[in-house]
Amino acid sequence: MANKLYPKGAEKLLGAQINLATDPIKAVLVPSTYTFSNAHEFLADLGAVVGAAATLANKSIAGGVFDAADLDFGALASGSTCKALVLFKDSGNPATSDLLCYFDEITGFPFSTNGGSLSVPWSDGPAKIISLVA
């Protein structure tokens, strides 16, 4: 599968209900058992995730492109296989935290956790994390 926006999240982004620059945007790792669905809207729809959410820091928007500092998930317990990374707007409640993007085309994914820490660098290319320009 390819990196993709969740349709409801895209609607909320384009309808100015989500502000990538000022809202708390976080990332979670989803296990190999997760199956992407266009119908998924909230963090609770993901089911179990691997480790704790990581907050995007140093967010910026310039020229139609969203970027942030690389992610650090810290140490992840052994025994899970991570298939993808999902961005969401954190409302404080998984039942109302909006899903934004599903990334499974990240170098090193899928991977098995082994107790070590995980850092995920965002692309240094022109698209960065999300690009609304071609």
Rank of each mutant, 00 (worst) to 15 (best):
G64M: 08
G51M: 14
D67K: 10
G63W: 03
D45C: 04
A68K: 00
L56F: 08
G74Y: 05
A77P: 00
V49K: 13
F42M: 14
D72K: 02
G47L: 09
L46K: 07
H40V: 01
G64Y: 07
V50R: 12
D70F: 03
A54I: 06
D72F: 07
D70V: 02
G47M: 11
G74C: 06
V65I: 12
F73E: 00
T55W: 08
A54L: 07
A53Q: 15
L76R: 06
N58G: 13
G51T: 14
A39M: 09
N38M: 00
N58S: 15
T55H: 12
L56P: 04
G47K: 11
V65L: 03
A44W: 10
A77Y: 03
H40Q: 10
G74R: 06
F73R: 03
N38E: 07
L71G: 00
I61Q: 09
I61M: 10
N58V: 13
F42K: 15
A39E: 11
A44N: 14
A77F: 03
A62G: 08
G64W: 05
V50F: 12
G47V: 09
F42V: 15
E41Q: 14
V49S: 13
A53K: 15
D72S: 10
A57E: 15
L71Q: 00
A77D: 07
A75Q: 09
G47E: 07
K59T: 09
V50H: 11
K59P: 02
G74P: 03
N58W: 08
A44T: 14
G47Q: 08
A69K: 01
G47R: 10
A39P: 06
F66E: 00
A69P: 00
I61T: 09
F42H: 12
A57P: 09
S60G: 12
G74W: 01
L71T: 02
L43G: 06
G63I: 04
A52G: 15
A68G: 05
L46G: 08
S60M: 06
L56I: 05
A44Q: 10
L56S: 04
I61E: 07
A75P: 02
A53L: 14
F66Y: 11
V65F: 02
D45Q: 05
G63E: 06
F66S: 00
V50T: 14
D67V: 00
D67P: 02
V50Q: 11
T55M: 13
G74N: 04
S60I: 00
